[in-house]
Nucleic acid binder design. Structure first.
Lengths: 334, 334
DNA sequence: TTGTATGCGTTATCAT
DNA sequence: ATGATAACGCATACAA
């Protein structure tokens, strides 16, 4: 079943069928009707592979992420997929894990699949440490446009949509300082581009208040609750006092709440806690968690919007930044 | 840059190049070397669209789900995508929402994209009520194999992988009854195939202990915490006593924990609570939540395994069932 | 407005 | 073992 069968049935040429199929002008109403009827009679569907071959595109975007089961990334993927579909694009999903060789491999794979563009979701693709090698991304950008969500690379054909994480953490830390806190703990679980911005926001806020950031108050935790809990218990055991915790992720903040429970501390009276990402978790704890909303939906829409414009040849800024908002719940006094 | 360029550079015909490309026999070592070298020199990548046209497949599987940001579904998608890739297949993701027309539309879309098979993830595609119309799925199965994860339709070319939800809820309810509970509340948030199995498991367990299920003790809650909380508060206000809560989802169980907090009830001493899905949430609450693990990973792997076998023409059972396990934490006494 | 002819880049068949 | 050529099904430039 192909376009020839339809043209035969309708008594017109394949060119006319094709024109009808693609909504092109210069088709008489009569011819159009005949073609439409033939298509219906034969239950014809155009062969997308043949179309792809001729047009050299399948209207497909590759989505890469380290782990699509991560709440934050899962949300981003959800919004991105929906938005792409609204624009007539399919999404090929690629979960790479954290291994750089796998990332490289999958990026190459997507290019060989001739997707029209690639969206790299999450901060796991760009790091700030010197050993970071994102050369494979700039290399890929020679072939097709790449959009980073929560990561930034200065490069031709690479675009970034970012949440202003620095400002978000800077602001919340400042608020805590203004409210009289002196000993604030910062817990983080990532040294990615976005992770470092948050950490710097914390440090800069302290410095703006004349406080020198102390390493004993800034702890890297692998992404789980128990690590955060353990870290705070260790600080307590060593005799390091603290009266507030800012976390780079809600999960770590949950650990802080568990710490408060274990020490019978009143939250927020004796310990104020702030999480990040405004995930479901923030509504599950007791008390409910004040959290920074990193605006995943807006970020996702902006990413798709950017890519669509690039594909149309429209002009777009290489970097767009969106502000986070603070969702006040019950682990803070303000 | 195409296969002709390579053949020219290597000084052989395109047939030979194609043979090398696809690891086919009847190529001399010498010719193979020349081709490989030419491919390397030119940095040639075969055009996948042309290959798709000739072979009539792009080695791609469609994954449909109602909402990829849902924790449970996000996990399933993660495992499925990884497993498909191991088998050399790409995944096209489709988030349909709950509207049946959208589901129908996207299923048609995937078929028109000529994917090799479709995996329907989650129980949102099959319902047990009479108004349910899954005719579009059986219709689609005429075109390509379909695998349901947590749903079942008896039909040719439709396969199901299921968690034994009935048994899981039956068992946990029985345990609670054995431990002396008489007034158990069941909270659920879905009337899907899987949702009904859970509900029936609850009812059957009661009946096995000579208790007639009371509607006042079985409540449908839309999927959020506050609804569960409100429901339990309402029961309390009306004077309906209860000493245990079984929930069809961890989120609802979180609502039950919040209820206990609001009434200053000791958990599990005064109220035992069991959740479902063993999500992160179960580790975030205080006390941590006993939950039924529905084995998403195993389910996902089984789904891919089934589909791969079908595509190979191997024989497969139409339904495979996997048993849930109970993850004991601190909201239950046993 | 309509139709013819060609190209897209593979894989596969069949002859050599 | 190798090569010439057809077939896959569409879009489109160009001719009519």
């Amino acid at each position: 079943m192909n376009i020839y069968d339809v043209s035969k049935k309708a008594g017109v040429s394949i060119a006319t069928v094709s024109r009808v199929l693609n909504g092109k002008p210069n088709v008489s109403a009569k011819a159009k009707d005949k073609v439409l009827q033939a298509i219906k009679d034969l239950d014809y569907t155009p062969n997308i592979f043949a179309r792809g071959l001729g047009l050299n595109t399948m209207k497909t975007i590759g989505i890469m992420c380290s782990d699509s089961s991560d709440t934050y990334l899962a949300n981003a993927i959800y919004y991105i997929e929906q938005e792409l579909r609204k624009n007539g694009y399919d999404s090929i999903l690629c979960c790479t894990g954290r291994d750089i060789d796998t990332k490289r491999k999958y990026l190459d794979l997507l290019i060989s699949k001739r997707v029209d563009g690639i969206i790299l979701v999450g901060s796991q693709f760009v790091f700030n440490d010197p050993s970071d090698d994102y050369g494979y991304i700039t290399e890929a950008a020679k072939e097709l446009p790449i959009v980073l969500v929560n990561g930034a690379i200065e490069n031709d054909n690479i675009y970034s949509v970012l949440c202003d994480d620095h400002k978000a953490v800077y602001d919340i830390t400042s608020t805590l300082l203004e409210n009289g806190h002196k000993k604030i703990v910062y817990l983080y679980n990532s040294t990615s581009f976005s992770g470092m911005k948050k950490l710097n926001g914390f440090q800069d806020a302290l410095q703006a208040y004349g406080i020198t950031p102390q390493p004993e108050y800034m702890h890297f935790c692998s992404k789980d609750i128990t690590c955060a809990l353990q870290t705070l218990q260790d600080m307590d055991a060593v005799g390091l006092p603290f009266d507030a915790v800012v976390a780079s992720d809600d999960l770590l903040a949950v650990g802080a709440i568990k710490y408060a429970h274990s020490k019978q501390l009143l939250v927020p009276e004796q310990l104020e806690i702030v999480g990040y990402n405004n995930s479901v978790l923030s509504k599950c704890t007791e008390p409910e968690l004040t959290s920074i909303d990193s605006q995943v939906e807006q970020l996702s829409l902006a990413a798709v919007d950017t890519l669509m414009k690039v594909l149309c040849g429209d002009y777009v800024t290489h970097t767009s930044t969106i502000s986070a908002t603070i969702i006040k719940r019950n682990t803070t006094k303000f």
